[in-house]
């Protein structure tokens, strides 16, 4: 089943066609790697799917439902969450609060009196331990190291409890032990039947983690299919070698 579909999707930044008539489908419950040379439109695809950048043409469907437009305010309701290539945290808040603000129920009375505080605190602890940030829980997010910031952003995405996770280069710049943690997170999401879209350059990680691969080039779809077969195709190899 396709949980995310785009049809003739395009996104122009004055003069640049970042996405150029892109039609693709993302399988539910699988890890799909999105690869392509620098500037091929990978981040733009995630930005459009998460309402950060409005599309300039084409259609998007989530779980078979065509959406007229998708804004940042609706993505959570569609069960979509994401991380950013350049990490975006709530920098003035401490590590724990970055998760609690996502975990706590968003109703009018819950807003005044934080309800179920204990349940949420426990879930936040669980997530922070998973990404090895529990010891840092009281530190300001803005003061964390680069890798820790990436891990916290991933934990925050997990806190949303979404069905679809769009990760924009979650491994970039991480130390090996942090790479292991993120790998673990992806494997677990897959086991839970969640859908993962993974933008990644490292082929070893892609072979290890991805069920499917989507290859972009110049905002267009170059290839799409099962990981091993797609990575072996000549046009894919050329796109990478020609970089």
């Amino acid at each position: 089943m396709l949980i995310l579909e785009t049809k003739d999707l395009s996104k122009r930044y004055d003069g640049v066609a970042a996405l150029d008539g892109l039609s693709l489908g993302i399988e539910a419950g699988a890890v799909t790697a999105v690869i392509g040379p620098n500037g091929s439109g990978k981040s733009t695809l995630v930005n459009v799917l998460s309402g950060v950048a409005p599309k300039t043409g084409g259609r998007i469907a989530v779980s078979g439902v065509a959406l007229g437009r998708i804004t940042a305010s609706d993505v959570a309701a569609y069960g979509i969450t994401r991380t950013f290539q350049e990490v975006r945290l709530f920098n003035q808040m401490n590590v724990m609060e970055n998760l609690l603000v996502v975990l706590t129920e968003k109703n009018v009375f819950g807003a005044i009196l934080e309800r179920h505080a204990e349940k949420h605190a426990r879930r936040a602890e669980e997530l922070l331990r998973k990404v090895n940030l529990w010891e840092k829980r009281s530190e300001l997010a803005g003061g964390l190291s680069y890798g820790q910031r990436k891990l916290l952003e991933i934990a925050r995405a997990l806190a949303s409890g979404a069905d679809i996770y769009l990760f924009d280069e979650p491994f970039a710049g991480l130390f090996p032990e942090m790479v292991k943690i993120v790998e673990g997170v992806l494997v677990e999401l897959r086991r839970e039947g969640k859908t993962v879209v993974l933008i990644e350059h490292n082929m070893d990680l892609i072979r290890a983690l991805a069920d499917r691969v989507v290859v972009l080039d110049g905002g267009k779809l170059l290839a799409e299919g099962a990981t091993a077969a797609t990575l072996g195709r000549r046009e894919v190899l050329e796109a990478y070698l020609g970089e």
Partner: peptide, 8 residues
């Protein structure tokens, strides 16, 4: 924008 994305 991120506040919106996380469902606030």
């Amino acid at each position: 924008e991120v506040a919106k994305i996380v469902g606030i």
